[in-house]
Design a protein around this nucleic acid. Structure first.
Lengths: 336, 336
DNA sequence: TTGAAAGCGCTAACAG
DNA sequence: CTGTTAGCGCTTTCAA
């Protein structure tokens, strides 16, 4: 009992007009006599006609679909951005092909190619890194690309982010001003420029500003996970550290819980500041003092920027990159 | 400097073969002489030819894309399912159009229609409810649909889930056996059948089994959010309650923190069990005892089932619905 | 205001 | 093993 599909041709025949006319009314073209329009509309409703977006895409070379690559949907940081992206996308009548990249360069390349093959009108890339092959791919396509959050070393591409270096500097100085001389820098992979350059530079800058020598052994690298944070509590205790600026909320939450479970009292015995202001920082106890980022807006504005690019609005090449304001919120993981 | 797009025709001409042959090579059709294949492959590489998936979709009536509707990406429960879906999808070479529905019936209908217009090969629906219009939509399309998690009143549609009633019953009985006679049922919206029927029935069943009368005032309805849980702590304290089975992890986490911040000690003064075993239950302190669900698998198996349906494998109509095993894990929010 | 007709780039018989 | 030929369902000139 396969339903017979009703096409634009069926409608045209039934309404005794041409396909062109049907196409016009479907697309809201004003050059149609009201009576004709009504007649067509009636037939469309009666037949329950639904335009085939694939055919439309082929003919018009627009798919009203944008690709979004995300390292991991279950990461609250990126999920929040994705929410902003999706909201604005649907506001502009775009659908989103969302693909997990697992931060794996091979897979990233694969999905980007697949997205491009599907003729997405634009692409939003979230990730920690842009490999050479990927950069190549982006440069050799006409499809506009926007980088959202997390990447900086990338002036070639339009991007939306905050000033990670300044934020890290402020967080570190906050700790320094509390008299913590040995502020650790506990981080996700340093090969990601956001960790290995921007934030680390901010950290160093704060140290320099306060005349405390940079100490390599205070830089503690992890994979950025909750588990890694939990496990590092031991090392932190052994080293007798008293404070840390942490680059990821999951990492910070893990560290916090590891410390607490080991009998260390935060913030009395240890002060902690994190970077992303995701739910992690608010759900744990004590809550975590953090740099704040407009997560939703980071995504929303990326998508908004992309719509402009897709509309061919290259007018202001100067503002291809958008830096949003960040903030800072004191919670319970630091002392008053 | 718009790049001239290279089509199958360009390749055919350059390789001095027909489009059909190029198509065969691209699609791995074995009926091509090795030398010819090589020649075509060379030209493809040289021209950097990429097949246009939209054209392919139009011609073949397959888009290798599936639609996924999700209430909210940032909800860890659904995000985990989405991860499973995406992994299996990419395993089977499908892309995913992921759309947030905000649990809004109007919007759900809109996105489902849009997905169908885009000729997705299949659809995975995550949500709390299926409105009449939506059910209608699903029934009048040939596109296979699988419901993943959360919905039960829906025997018409293939679905993948756990036995929510049995799980709720076990959780409630655990509390009852601890001597808590006044076990509250703190829930998200009761209009969702999963809360208003399945879990509630499990709760009642447990009460009946243990000869404790069902008490309407122990059923506390909320919107299911962390904030709602936090706020409800007050009411719980005023009512002098000592234990609760909670239907959502965010809700449970909020309640827990609300209680703790109000000076109530969990589990000494109050026992708490939650339902979904998301990160929430593991990150808070005390950690939350919970029903466990194979979240990732729920998604993965939904997608796997969908691939079968898309392949037209209607062979076993009997097992259209899959019920996965659930479990239970004791953590710190209940006494030993 | 409307229609005819030429594609969009590819797949899928069918014939050879 | 390979080529020819219709489409897939729609948009978009171009004329009328």
């Amino acid at each position: 009992m396969e339903k017979q599909s009703v096409t634009i041709y069926t409608v045209a025949r039934e309404a005794r007009v041409s396909m062109a006319t049907v196409s016009r009314v479907v697309n809201g073209n004003p050059n149609v006599k009201p009576e004709t329009r009504q007649k067509v509309l009636d037939v469309i409703k009666q037949l329950n006609y639904r335009p085939n977006a694939v055919a439309r895409g082929l003919a018009s070379k627009k798919t009203t679909t944008v690709g979004v690559v995300i390292p991991n949907i279950t990461d609250p940081y990126f999920a929040e951005l994705a929410l902003g992206i999706d909201d604005v996308a649907s506001m502009y009548k775009y659908n989103i092909i969302l693909t997990n990249s697992d931060s794996d360069d091979e897979k990233i390349l694969k999905v980007v190619r697949s997205l491009l093959a599907k003729q997405v009108d634009g692409l939003i890339f979230m990730g920690h890194d842009v490999s050479d092959d990927l950069r190549n791919e982006f440069e050799s396509t006409n499809t506009p690309v926007v980088v959202a959050g997390s990447i900086v070393n990338n002036d070639a591409l339009p991007s939306v982010r905050i000033n990670y270096q300044a934020a890290a500097k402020e967080a570190t100085e906050f700790l320094l001003k509390h008299g913590d001389q040995q502020v650790a820098y506990i981080t996700g992979p340093l090969r990601y420029s956001i960790n290995g350059e921007d934030r680390l530079n901010g950290y160093k800058e704060a140290m320099a500003n306060n005349n405390v020598a940079f100490n390599e052994s205070l830089v503690i690298e992890t994979d950025g996970s909750y588990q890694a944070g939990y496990a590092k509590a031991q090392e932190v205790i052994e080293k007798g550290l008293k404070a840390a600026y942490v680059t990821d909320d999951s990492l910070a939450a893990g560290l916090l819980n590891g410390l607490t479970d080991a009998g260390i009292s935060v913030p009395d015995d240890f002060e902690l500041i994190s970077s992303n202001d995701t739910n992690y920082t608010k759900v744990v106890r004590p809550t975590i003092t953090s740099i704040t980022q407009p997560l939703y807006d980071l995504g929303a504005i990326s998508m908004r920027l992309l719509t402009k690019l897709m509309d061919g609005d290259d007018s202001n090449d100067d503002e291809k990159s958008v830096i949003l304001d960040h903030g800072f919120v004191e919670r319970q993981s630091t002392r008053k």
